[in-house]
């Protein structure tokens, strides 16, 4: 057997399953978004579903909200994760406990975290009760609306909680492969601690940080169950809006749901492209 055949044989099952399910799933979504629905008597593809959603204020608000959720969550989580990774690189009493908690968090389903955040931050939640006990508020309504709120604060809090450990773990793994020598060399050449971090360590961490951030962004942009639990009645996060359009008992809204899914997929593909580039350039530049 030649290598070519061997490679093909080895890859075949994975390509058949992922190709079969993923590509056809995406393909059918695309067809339906073009209003090609022979079952409903629609046989002339057109772009009206896209026109409809792109001119609908509700959709644009949802798109904006989802982009806001993904950007804010990613930036905050990445920044805090960088700090956490630098902290956990050092040795101090209790480090093992924190490392365990960081790993534990990785195993927790998002939906559990979302419910926990809801019970903590809602206007009658744990923090509101503490504020009441401290005499800061008289009634739940006095507590700031942090969940089911228009700025999606609760959703962002959940992602910061859930993705901070994820990015931290990746950074820690990267830090293990970076020897401390680089920094000590820089320090011995007269660089300050900050300069050594800024010009030596950070560039070496950047590919890992960027790749992890791309994954977090993609997830926060496309997740359904988190905004379902923590989101406001309007505007809805894009995935929630798409699912509601899909499950509407009026089948005529289906092409619009499909068009939303295609736009979500396009954002995903863009992120995939960026991610592959980061991995490739990371592979070239990293020590």
């Amino acid at each position: 057997m030649t290598d070519r055949h061997r490679i093909l044989l080895l890859l075949a099952p994975a390509l058949v399953i992922l190709g079969g399910l993923f590509i056809t799933g995406l393909g059918l979504t695309l067809l339906r978004s073009l209003r090609y629905f022979p079952g409903l008597g629609l046989t002339d593809p057109d772009l009206s579903a896209y026109r409809a959603i792109l001119t609908s204020p509700g959709f644009l608000k949802s798109l904006g909200l989802s982009l806001w959720i993904a950007s804010a969550s990613t930036l905050i989580a990445a920044g805090l994760a960088l700090a956490a990774a630098l902290l956990l690189r050092q040795t101090f009493p209790g480090r093992a406990v924190i490392s365990f908690l960081v790993q534990l968090n990785l195993t927790i389903p998002h939906i559990v975290g979302a419910i926990g955040i809801l019970y903590l931050f809602s206007q009658s939640g744990s923090f509101a009760r503490l504020a009441h006990a401290a005499g800061l508020i008289a009634a739940p309504g006095d507590f700031p609306a942090l969940t089911q709120d228009p700025y999606a604060i609760g959703i962002i809090l959940l992602y910061v909680w859930k993705e901070l450990p994820f990015i931290t773990l990746i950074l820690l793994a990267n830090l293990q492969s970076i020897s401390a020598d680089h920094e000590s060399v820089a320090r011995s050449l007269g660089a300050t601690r900050w300069q050594a971090f800024r010009h030596v360590l950070l560039p070496m961490l950047m590919p890992g940080l960027a790749a992890a951030s791309a994954l977090v962004f993609a997830f926060a942009f496309g997740a359904y169950e988190v905004p379902l639990i923590l989101g406001a009645s309007a505007p809805k996060a894009l995935p929630v809006l798409a699912w509601q359009s899909y499950t509407d008992t009026d089948l005529s809204t289906r092409p619009e749901a499909m068009a939303m899914a295609v736009l979500i997929a396009l954002f995903g593909l863009l992120l995939l492209f960026l991610y592959m580039r980061i991995l490739r350039s990371g592979g070239r530049d990293a020590p």
């Binding site: 079952g39 409903l40 899909y246 499950t247 509407d248 008992t249 089948l251």
Partner: peptide, 12 residues
């Protein structure tokens, strides 16, 4: 409503 939609999808 989600279940009504499921049955509708099945019919389709």
């Amino acid at each position: 409503a989600e279940i009504v939609n499921l049955i509708l999808s099945e019919k389709e």
